[in-house]
């Protein structure tokens, strides 16, 4: 089960995805262990979103195999996937909120509709929803509709919905895209908080190197309620963050932040240089 260290939670083995002969993913191989944080960088159209959708089985690979929690999902039917997907949280690029449902109904959606969680009473569901929204500091928006919220608030609701069932693996698709730097940092801080408090394995797709830096070097201190740099109080080794760089559907880099910053490849170093610009 998740939570056990060193267990392989997500594994891509030679995965290719093609749309009309154009490869969106090209022979991608990597694996993620429980408790790990993975930051996936890449230019627009480099296949980052397709990677996340393939991990969830929303897109079927043309070649190769995808394993989640040790199960090969490549040949599973759509119906067999639903149980597995309830163990993975996903934040879509634009939030993916249901615009005809209120914020409360949106966050409650996985609790109400997933077979795994259908035993909860309405009171328990409301409690969990309120708790999840309090976590992203939006507990006063229960009765509002997504269209009444700002872009940043919608992403926060998306985070609350992805984490409400406390899944062992959460995937974030460009949570900071199109947001101002202040809101973007708030969103990443919330992701760090979710990750550390609920002990979730996290994969984050982004084109902002700063997002990766925050995830790799900060942890949430539950006592102060603030983020603090890793290394303080002897907690340096509590998290492992791996960086990946994608280019035209291929994985061109996989390694630590130090290795990424030391890379001489012009494409890779462009991402590392962002933070100093």
């Amino acid at each position: 089960m998740a939570g056990q260290s060193n267990e392989c939670i997500l594994r891509f083995d030679g995965v290719s995805v093609r749309f009309d002969e154009t490869p969106a993913l090209d022979g991608l191989s990597f694996s993620m262990r429980a408790g790990e944080t993975r930051v996936i960088l890449g230019a627009a159209g480099s296949g980052k979103t397709v990677l996340l959708k393939a991990a969830l089985g929303l897109i079927r690979p043309t070649e190769g195999t995808v394993s989640v929690f040790g199960d090969d999902i490549t040949r599973r039917t759509e119906r067999e996937m639903f149980g597995l997907r309830s163990r993975i949280g996903m934040l879509f690029q634009e939030g993916g909120l249901f615009d005809s449902l209120t914020i409360e109904e949106n966050v409650a959606y996985p609790l109400v509709n997933q077979q795994r969680a259908r035993r909860l009473s309405p009171e328990q569901i409301r409690e969990r929803v309120e708790e999840s929204l309090r976590f992203v500091e939006l507990e006063r928006t229960l009765d509002k509709f997504p269209s009444e919220l700002s872009g940043g608030m919608r992403r926060r609701v998306g985070i609350a919905r992805a984490a409400v069932t406390e899944p062992p693996l959460v995937l974030f698709d460009s949570p900071t895209a199109g947001l101002d730097p202040i809101t973007a940092n708030t969103i990443i801080a919330l992701i760090v908080k979710e990750r550390d408090v609920k002990n979730m394995t996290t994969a984050l797709v982004t084109h902002r190197y700063q997002d990766g830096t925050l995830l790799a070097n900060f942890r949430y201190n539950p006592e102060s309620g603030q983020l603090e740099p890793l290394g303080r109080n002897g907690n340096a080794a509590s998290r492992t963050t791996t960086f990946m760089v994608m280019r035209e559907g291929r994985l061109v880099f996989e390694g630590t932040q130090g290795q990424l910053e030391a890379s001489r490849d012009p494409y890779i170093s462009k991402f590392a240089r962002q933070s100093s610009e």
């Binding site: 929303l58 639903f82 997907r85 909120l97 509709n113 795994r116």
Partner: peptide, 22 residues
């Protein structure tokens, strides 16, 4: 159609519910 183009159908699948059933 609006749900499809705004990724709500994908979100529904990702949240573990069958859009055909729902």
């Amino acid at each position: 159609g609006s749900m499809k183009v705004t990724e709500q159908i994908d979100a529904m699948r990702a949240l573990g519910t069958d859009p055909v059933q729902k």
